[in-house]
Each structure stands twice: as structure tokens, then as C-alpha cells.
């Protein structure tokens, strides 16, 4: 269960070769928006060479390929063949794009790689449950900037313009039993804004958040790691649950029931995965 997904441009050696340094649970090597059309080939060759040669101790690697209707989509897929990566981030994902994606692999007689569906169009927002239910899709990710443009509106500090999409995404992902990854905070050097935006991601119930800059990763990891207080509380609930053998009891005057016990188990699981070494 990754908390942070860090975007790294595919044609910058300094970023690629330090992908394991930035403490992101997963990285997304970008072949799409971060790469100019005439250097797409450079990004593909560089990324392939790096992962082939330095494959030890790397985080989970996803690659954001170009959209299915783009000429570079097939070249991207070909360049990734046989590489040890976790999956693909598919931009402009909708049911049509997912079908094209699957067919591409079927034609080649290959197993398609798992997907993170990047939801960045109004139609995709309204089709999210169908997308989340698609067998290859492992997570939904919100592309807040493109969506905002498509809505012909402007980004606000409160991110009101994407609030509905955020809510829908968390619901659709939960309904399909997959992860939901919130859109990255788009400003590099604005710690207060970053904190406020992360707080929203957590409050909406996302399971993780994307990052456009390595310096955002630590704050995201912290926010998506259960606090010591939450872990202690969960331990007490589970201890009482074991002691009483009941799924309905009172603790410090609060009624504890099944959903709360399930949530406590989740907290312990999350904390276990990510250690408690974060200050």
C-alpha cells in the first residue's frame, strides 16, 4: 500500500538515478507531459538503460506513457517491454482508452501491465466506477490540473473545482476495492499550501497522493501514516475486542462496533507496513 507516488521526468538523469533517495513509496517516470515531443525517444532510452542497469533497491516504478491516441503510445509500450516495472499510468483514461490499451497487448500476444487510471476528463469522472471495475485497473488517480482546464475554470486555494471529482473518486475506488490516489499539489515551494492540500486528501479518504516534487514526499508520507495516537487507540480497541470476544462494547464511553474494529485493524496494518520511524 503506497502512500506517495512521485512523478519523475523520464529524460533527467539526476532525477532518475536518485529515484530511490527521495523516500517515495512509488515513482511514476513520466514520458508524457514532462517530456517535449522531440525528446520522447531520449526519455525512453534513458529510462530503459537506467532500470536495466541499476535495478537493485528501487521503489515501485510506474511509467506514465502517452495517451492511447498518441503516436508515441505504442513506442512507449515497446520500450517498456521486458522491463521490471510495477505498472503503467494511463493518461486520459476512460472506458474507450482502457479497451484500446488491452487490445494493444492482445494484438502483440502479451500480458498487459497493471494500470493506474489517470482521471482527468469530465466524462471519465462520471464513468469512474466502470473504470475502477475494469480488471487491469489497480488504482484511480486524479489529474486535477487537466480536469480544471477541461472545466474551463481556475484553480482555487480551497480546490473547490475538483471537490466533486475527489469525492466521486474515493467512492468509486472503495466500491471497486482498489486504491485512490489524489492529484499532486502543483506548487513547488509553498509548504503551507502543501500541508493544507494534503489535509484535504486525507480528509476525503484517499489512500495515497501523487507528488510533483521530491520535497513534497515526506509530508505526504507522514500524513498517510497513522499517528502514534491513532495506533495506540487502535491497539486498545483490538485488545478490548479480543478480551471481550465481542464486536460491540464501550471504551472510554464511546460505543465500539464492527466498522470501528475493522478500521482499527487497518490502522495497525498501515502502521506495520510503513514502520513507525517517521518523526
Amino acid at each position: 500500500m503506497a502512500r506517495s507516488y512521485l512523478f519523475i521526468p523520464g529524460d533527467v538523469p539526476r532525477m532518475l538515478q536518485n529515484m530511490d533517495v527521495f523516500e517515495a513509496d512509488a515513482v511514476i517516470v513520466d514520458f508524457e507531459d514532462a517530456i517535449a515531443t522531440h525528446t520522447k525517444d531520449e526519455a525512453r532510452d534513458l529510462t530503459r538503460a537506467f532500470i536495466t542497469k541499476h535495478h537493485e533497491n528501487l521503489p515501485d516504478i510506474y511509467v506514465r506513457v502517452n495517451a492511447v491516441e498518441h503516436d508515441d503510445f505504442m513506442r512507449d509500450i515497446d520500450a517498456l517491454f521486458g522491463l521490471d516495472i510495477t505498472g503503467i499510468v494511463l493518461p486520459k483514461a476512460d472506458t474507450h482508452a482502457l479497451k484500446r490499451y488491452r487490445e494493444t497487448f492482445e494484438k502483440k500476444g502479451e500480458h498487459p501491465l497493471h494500470l493506474i487510471a489517470l482521471i482527468e476528463t469530465p466524462r471519465a469522472c462520471l464513468d469512474m466506477l466502470a473504470i475502477a471495475d475494469y480488471p487491469l485497473v489497480r488504482a484511480l488517480m486524479l489529474g486535477g490540473e487537466d480536469l480544471t482546464s477541461a472545466l474551463a475554470t481556475a484553480r482555487t486555494n480551497a480546490r473547490t473545482e475538483i471537490a466533486t471529482a475527489r469525492g466521486l473518486m474515493v467512492l468509486a475506488a472503495a466500491a471497486a476495492g482498489i486504491d485512490s490516489i489524489d492529484t499532486p499539489y502543483p506548487v513547488v515551494d509553498h509548504p503551507e499550501g502543501l500541508q493544507a492540500d494534503i489535509a484535504q486528501s486525507v480528509a476525503f479518504g484517499f489512500s495515497a497522493k501523487a507528488c510533483i516534487h521530491p520535497n513534497h514526499v515526506d509530508a505526504v508520507n507522514r500524513a498517510f501514516t497513522p499517528s502514534q495516537a491513532a495506533v495506540d487507540e487502535a491497539r486498545r480497541i483490538l485488545a478490548m475486542h479480543e478480551k471481550t470476544g465481542s464486536t460491540r462494547f464501550s471504551l472510554d464511553g464511546n460505543m465500539i462496533d464492527k466498522p470501528i474494529i475493522e478500521r482499527a485493524k487497518n490502522v495497525i496494518k498501515q502502521a506495520g507496513i510503513h514502520g513507525r520511524d517517521l518523526p
Partner: peptide
Amino acid sequence: GALDYAIEARLETAIKR
């Protein structure tokens, strides 16, 4: 200060082009 993989990859791209 490029590492070997980067020099190799840059040259590969150049040769393809």
C-alpha cells in the same frame, strides 16, 4: 558527470536517429 547508463542511453538515441 553522467553515469555510464546515461552516456550509453544518450549515444543509443543518437545512433537510432
